Structure formats: structure tokens, C-alpha cells
Lab assay of single mutants.
Amino acid sequence: DTINITLPDGKTLTLTVTPEFTVKELAEEIARRLGLSPEDIKDTHNGKTLDPSLTLAEYGITPGSTITLEIK
């Protein structure tokens, strides 16, 4: 299953994830792909900052969802 990550420059990154991924694991994968530190990444969905300890499923993030990435 894939989700879309909207980057600060407007580009989109597509990642393969499972509903059990935590937001922290997602940030780590994004950081790895972009050459950043996971601590520099802030993920938001529907205007809410995502708690790193919760899973994508707990936020109702499903395949095809879009998450907005902010760099701290």
C-alpha cells in the first residue's frame, strides 16, 4: 500500500507502508530518503501534527492518503 508525502517544495514522494507503521517509522523512512534527520521532520494530516507513537491506522491514514511534510 502506498501513501503520498507532500514535500515543502510541492513535490510528492510516494512511500510503501502498512497501516501498522508508526508515525515515527514513517518519519525515519522519509528522513532516510531525503537525507535528513528524523527529528527534523514534522508530519501533518488534515491540519493536525501527528504523534510519533501512534500508527497510521490510528489516524485513519489509508492507501492513497496524503501527508504533508514540514521541515523543523
Rank of each mutant, 00 (worst) to 15 (best):
D1R: 06
D1I: 15
T2E: 08
I3S: 01
N4F: 11
N4T: 11
I5G: 00
T6Y: 12
T6R: 14
L7N: 01
L7I: 05
P8H: 08
P8Q: 10
P8Y: 06
D9V: 02
D9C: 11
G10V: 01
K11L: 12
T12I: 12
T12S: 09
T12M: 11
T12Y: 10
T12H: 09
L13I: 14
L13E: 04
L13Q: 03
T14R: 09
L15I: 14
L15M: 10
L15F: 07
L15P: 00
V17H: 03
T18F: 09
T18V: 06
F21I: 10
T22F: 01
T22Y: 02
V23A: 02
V23N: 01
V23G: 03
V23D: 00
K24S: 07
K24C: 06
K24M: 08
A27R: 14
A27E: 06
E28S: 06
E29A: 11
E29Q: 07
E29H: 08
E29N: 04
E29R: 03
I30R: 00
I30S: 00
I30V: 11
A31R: 05
A31Y: 09
A31W: 08
R33T: 10
L34F: 10
L34I: 06
L34A: 05
L34H: 02
G35A: 04
G35Q: 07
S37I: 11
S37Y: 13
P38T: 12
P38Y: 14
E39G: 15
E39H: 13
E39N: 13
E39Y: 07
D40L: 12
I41R: 02
I41P: 01
K42S: 13
K42N: 08
K42Q: 11
K42R: 11
D43G: 15
D43M: 15
T44V: 13
T44L: 15
H45L: 15
H45A: 11
N46A: 07
N46K: 03
N46M: 09
G47F: 15
G47C: 13
G47M: 08
L50H: 04
L50I: 14
D51H: 04
P52T: 13
P52F: 14
P52G: 15
L54R: 14
L54A: 14
L54E: 03
T55S: 06
T55Q: 03
L56T: 01
A57D: 05
A57T: 09
A57K: 12
A57Y: 14
A57C: 06
E58P: 00
Y59C: 12
Y59R: 01
G60S: 03
I61S: 02
P63K: 03
P63L: 06
P63S: 08
P63E: 07
G64L: 03
S65C: 11
T66K: 05
I67K: 00
I67C: 06
I67A: 02
T68I: 13
T68F: 13
T68L: 12
T68R: 13
T68K: 13
L69Y: 03
E70A: 09
E70H: 10
E70K: 05
E70G: 08
E70M: 07
K72S: 13
